[in-house]
Design a protein around this nucleic acid. Structure first.
Lengths: 230, 230
DNA sequence: GGTTGTCCTTGACTTGAGTCAACAGAGCAC
DNA sequence: GTGCTCTGTTGACTCAAGTCAAGGACAACC
């Protein structure tokens, strides 16, 4: 697929003209990254942003001793690394593919020119940033005000919300990465999955988890109930 | 001061024409709130956003048992409550003044019309949202990867960065509110201030804190050093 | 087939920070 | 003055979740 065709399919660019798609295509760069490579690093200067074409990209912070907190995992069609385009010029976090991925890169200046002329693009971009602010506010809420079982319950329900009728969810990432998304470590996650199983909330089979007690999980996620000690 | 004059001074509206200022002024509403009143609540529908004129406004999340996590404290000139304008229509958190405050309210639709026609306003707004994303990313990093002494050290250095040469900082909020900003509780904050004092990092005099060892605080904030046990 | 590395789990232990309770000082109301 | 609320501090205790260490399951690769 050529660059223009990719661009035409991106929700961010919904509503822009054919000519503008063509203009964008002419300045966009295609890049591919292998698992484990670095796309960008926290604090590094950024002169453009990316959109995922294939694969999945994780955005994360690192502590001094190497512990990781995942902020986002983006899939095809989703933009990432936009913050330095509009403010500060430096990336606020690190970025790495979870698996071999291809992305399209849009240089800052051309994109800003385009945005100035394009009300629908502007509103799309404001929507993207707003959605992220909302998710971050929820994450801060979780990290500060909930315990790990509550965060996990919320995450499971959230995954389930996208595949509604089924009471099964399939984890989209390895459990160690899930731990990093929830702000904890694999050992703790493992123990909590075990407790939730013992207490009849869920049934775990590898990456497939059956939600046996949605109501109970909801109460856990809202802090109205806690896991008992055995 | 009339509405138009206020608007002319807001950084967000820098670069818009006199006519547009006048248009905005004609639709903007002035409101004042007493300490303890609610401006908006988490989950409530929002059909516009606010800009602080005087006083200070806190934006916060609440846990089931009433613990508070402060996300922002905004002062004069700063916009707040924009997320529902661009996405989802509901406020992602609660808002309350810290003290008697006046704000200006801009209804959603008129503002969206204006934004579509105004490249500089658009870029200002994208900048505002991007700055917030950056701050939230830092907060998530802090909450997930640092201990309370590290967060406090980072906060003190941050306050100090705005009044550079002096090694004094003046807390702008009561200590119980500071605790809620740092994701902890007043008792813990109090104990940590005491330890930092004993160990020569700072000297506390009510709301004035002298930074005696900036380098040490920096190391604490980066997780390179920890407070010792006595 | 064996080696290597990744992912996951379990056990024993430690600890940071929260809970609960009590109290002191400041400011304000009456 | 006396009482009241708000803010901040301190002590004793508890507990969620982290650290450290070990081992199992599994796939990938030579």
């Amino acid at each position: 697929m050529d660059k223009k065709a990719h661009i035409a399919q991106m929700p961010l660019f919904e509503g822009i003209s054919e000519t503008q798609q063509q203009d964008l295509a002419s300045i966009a760069l295609l890049k591919t990254f292998e698992r484990g490579e670095t796309i960008f690093s926290d604090g590094e200067a950024g002169n453009g942003f990316y959109v995922v074409l294939s694969g999945r990209i994780k955005i994360f912070k690192l502590s001094a001793d190497g512990k990781e907190q995942i902020l986002h995992i983006f899939g095809p069609g989703e933009p990432f690394g936009e913050v330095p385009v509009f403010e500060g010029r430096r990336f606020p976090a690190n970025s790495e593919p979870l698996e071999k991925s291809s992305v399209m890169f849009f240089p800052r200046t051309a994109f800003i020119d385009l945005i100035k002329r394009n009300p629908s693009l502007v509103l799309n971009m404001l929507g993207v940033l707003s959605r992220r602010l909302r998710r971050f506010a929820a994450m801060i809420d979780d990290l500060s005000l909930k315990e790990v079982p509550g965060r996990l319950a919320a995450h499971l329900l959230d995954l389930n919300a996208r595949q509604p009728e089924s009471s099964q969810v399939a984890l989209t990432v390895p459990k160690n990465q899930l731990a990093a998304m929830l702000g904890t470590i694999p050992e703790t996650l493992s123990r909590i999955l075990q407790k939730m199983t013992q207490q009849g909330f869920i049934k775990v089979d590898g990456k497939n988890i059956s939600l046996l007690d949605r109501e109970g999980l909801k109460e856990l996620s809202e802090g109205l109930r806690r896991l008992s000690h055995e």
